[in-house]
Design a protein around this nucleic acid. Structure first.
Lengths: 267, 267
DNA sequence: CGCGGCTTTGACCATTTTCAATCGCCGTGG
DNA sequence: CCACGGCGATTGAAAATGGTCAAAGCCGCG
């Protein structure tokens, strides 16, 4: 019987958790709240009073620009927790809102602190999760900055498969994507019109199938290749040897670190 | 006499530091190394043996794609320190390399741990710096995803002014930008050709002046407006009231957090 | 003086966006 | 049970933005 707490599942996949850790984490999700779609959990400029844990549905981090356009910064799926370091900041620089109807638990700042300070195992797992989120953000920047539109979508679809699978919400070949094409557009820096056309193209190439909100990936290897996707950054147990990236620039020889050259030595 | 240690300057601007904190931080930068331009400090896949502190020059985080294109993920300027949580990860998901000749200090993992665990003041300042870096990464994603090319460049130029100013490397109106147009292109998801043309356009609009590598900003307010730039995310002491962003979605009423609705209540 | 790296320019081309309509599905109210 | 309304998906045509390719131009440095 699979674990019903997605946070537990996710963290346990990143770092071992003791039974006591698990008990504490389970308590954290004890008071879930149902939230309708398209609802802000916290807005830009707000002072966070804790963090949110998504238990069901999909949410996102986003920013709205002065001209009304939106950029989605990250998708939050069940098990995702946001902003461990709330204690340090007093104003959100972006908003967090639901995209589908969600089930969410609110964790007060105090509790976050207790978890982080009093439970090294949990703290480690949560810090790792935060690092993975940062790595994902970097992938998104590469996605939007340097990949073709089709690749961007393919990449996101691959990413969602891995992430949803690790909380038991995807089979080996597909999952329910609770997003609109507008949401995908705002995440990939595209237009919803073009998302539509690119998705169709991926379909024609036989890389994906879409029935309603169900995404089916008949040949994962093919989609990953088309997406230039390497799951390594998600740090899930997926043994994929990564290829050598063509490098730019010269390497700094190790020995150089030993030679202390005074700053004035600069030309 | 201004502080010559850019790390100290930067951290002190984020959070108060005791004299002892300052002494410790000064020691950290005690063994600088000169590194030529276009040299990798650490590559994707490498296991970090510590962190690097930039003392002079400009470096960047970047990724190379299979087709050879590069995406710059962040610029590192004097005072910037990378990857506090090295202890947790054993492989870099991106590379760090110099863009100009640099002066760099290497800080072993152990020392980072000591700083973080034994000096709460320093730890707090460094964690804040990391949060600012994350916020900057979000801005970059918005930049590349949703802003026109001219805006993107203007935004980066504004950002560099604020950042360089806070380590004493920029006057009120300008600074030396030790980057090529190719570097700017790789940071903004553009072509170097188009960077050139957009820069010219900004020049024609009177928003910037460029003489060699010197960037002059005659009317900061005008450039900020053109860039849709709000320095708030950098958390520097710059009292700019930020405008209300046009919001999307409904707010979650505070009371909702109190009502514990069981997850099954979902429609 | 010549080379190499970076910037600048021009012409042409491709990809995406924009704008506008249409279609389909689904839940609501009559 | 069916019309209505709304959101989201789809389509087409025209326009715009940004990319590609290739050739100079500039400038500092050895």
């Amino acid at each position: 019987m699979p674990d019903h707490n997605p946070l537990l599942r996710k963290l346990a996949a990143l770092s071992p958790l003791s039974d006591e850790d698990r008990r504490h984490l389970a308590q954290v999700a004890a008071h879930p709240v149902a939230v309708p779609a398209r609802t802000d959990l916290i807005r830009e400029g707000d002072t966070p009073r804790g963090v949110f844990l998504v238990l069901e549905g999909m949410a996102c981090r986003y920013k709205i620009l002065p001209d009304g356009t939106r950029q989605v910064l990250a998708f939050l799926i069940p098990g995702d927790l946001c902003d461990l370091d709330v204690r340090l900041l007093n104003a959100m620089d972006h908003a967090i809102g639901t995209l589908s109807p969600c089930c969410v638990a609110h964790i007060p700042t105090r509790t976050v602190g207790d978890l982080l300070d009093g439970h090294p195992g949990i703290a480690r797992a949560m810090r790792l999760a935060a690092l993975v989120e940062a790595a994902t953000a970097r992938q998104w920047l590469v996605n939007v900055g340097r990949r073709s539109c089709e690749r961007r979508l393919a990449h996101i679809l691959c990413e969602m498969l891995v992430r949803l699978r690790s909380v038991g919400l995807a089979s080996d070949v597909g999952y329910d994507l609770l997003l609109t094409q507008v949401d995908l557009a705002d995440a990939t820096g595209m237009t919803s019109v073009h998302v539509n056309r690119s998705l169709q193209s991926l379909r024609k190439r036989g890389l994906i199938e879409i029935r309603g909100r169900r995404v089916v990936i008949p040949d994962l290897a093919a989609l990953e290749a088309a997406a230039d996707f390497d799951s390594g950054y998600l740090h899930r147990a997926t043994p994929d040897p990564r290829p050598d990236p063509g490098l730019r620039g010269t390497a700094l020889p190790d020995a150089a670190l030993r030679d202390a050259v005074p700053p004035e030595a600069r030309a």
